[in-house]
């Protein structure tokens, strides 16, 4: 017999993968990846997109949409069981709440990751002249963002009273990350009025900006980027100043790890301690 957690992962995966929301975003992601880098490339007068163009295009245009897959699905995961009156029957089985939480997290993570792999990966294979594994790193970063968003969504789900409340809060967070923080307004204010060093916390509190910076420093700029600081902009200069050229990626990875772990652990503890 398989461990009970596998049955929960399987059920959650199958529920999520059949969701119209997920299917719709897989298609949207596919067309974003397949279409927009071409637009970018041709607008720059290039004949075909290079891998760099593809990575940059994905990071700028596709990443902001990814939380819209994980957040709504994840926000319904725990509170949805309560709303549909299925939670009591589920928890009265010889399983622990840890099984339920872990099963739900990984079931949804695998489903959303599969959607991303199909949407982004297949599109990339179609448009790349010579398929390269470099684009796989972009997918890995996207999986990281998915894990962080699922953790946040589960935290929202554990705290919310019903599904509609959870969905509302989840969409607000997407708006916060993708629009409010990211619209450049905050960055502009900080750059003009204060030391650019203050841009660093703005990056750290926004997982979308974190994955974009990780993509830039891990995949796009060369190892000797610090030689030509002028190309990095005020944020890059501030990060080199604080962390040194070698410290930027560890800082970004650590911040991302915190974004994955902190909401997930908070969601887990809340779910475990809460009465049904």
């Amino acid at each position: 017999m398989l461990p009970p957690v596998i049955y929960i992962i399987r059920k959650e995966f199958s529920d999520s993968i059949r969701s119209r929301w997920l299917i719709a975003f897989t298609v949207i992601t596919f067309f974003l990846v397949i279409g927009l880098p071409f637009v970018v490339a041709y607008s720059l007068g290039l004949m075909a997109p290079t891998i760099q163009t593809l990575i940059a295009g994905t990071s700028e245009i596709v990443y902001p949409f990814l939380p819209l897959i994980a957040l709504p699905i994840g926000s319904a995961a725990l509170v949805g069981e309560r709303d549909r009156n299925t939670l009591e029957l589920l928890l009265s089985q010889p399983i622990s709440k840890i099984n339920v939480f872990v099963g739900k997290f990984f079931g949804m993570f695998f489903a959303v990751s599969a959607a991303i792999s199909i949407g982004m990966g297949v599109a990339a294979l179609v448009i790349m002249e010579a398929p390269t594994l470099e684009y796989f790193s972009v997918l890995v970063i996207a999986y990281g963002l998915t894990a962080a968003m699922l953790g946040l969504a589960l935290m929202i789900s554990a705290f919310s009273k019903d599904r509609s409340m959870a969905l509302g809060i989840a969409l607000f967070f997407w708006f916060l990350f993708a629009v409010l923080i990211d619209m450049g307004f905050l960055s502009l204010v900080v750059t003009v009025a204060f030391d650019p060093v203050y841009l660093i916390p703005i990056v750290a509190i926004n997982p979308l900006e974190l994955v974009r910076q990780i993509t830039i420093y891990a995949l796009l700029v060369g190892e000797d980027f610090a030689v030509n600081l002028a190309t990095l902009g005020p944020l890059g200069i501030a990060m080199v100043k604080i962390f040194g050229a070698e410290g930027i990626l560890p800082f970004l990875y650590t911040s991302m790890a915190v974004w994955i772990l902190a909401p997930t652990i908070t969601a887990f503890v809340t779910f475990i301690k809460k009465d049904i």
């Binding site: 549909r84 009156n85 299925t86 009591e88 029957l89 009265s92 089985q93 010889p94 399983i95």
Partner: peptide, 20 residues
């Protein structure tokens, strides 16, 4: 609790199977 739930068949009043 886990072991005990294995010894008990519980039919809750306000719960249901998965409708879908």
């Amino acid at each position: 609790g886990k072991w005990i739930r294995g010894q008990v068949g519980y039919l809750p009043q306000h719960s249901s199977p998965y409708d879908d």
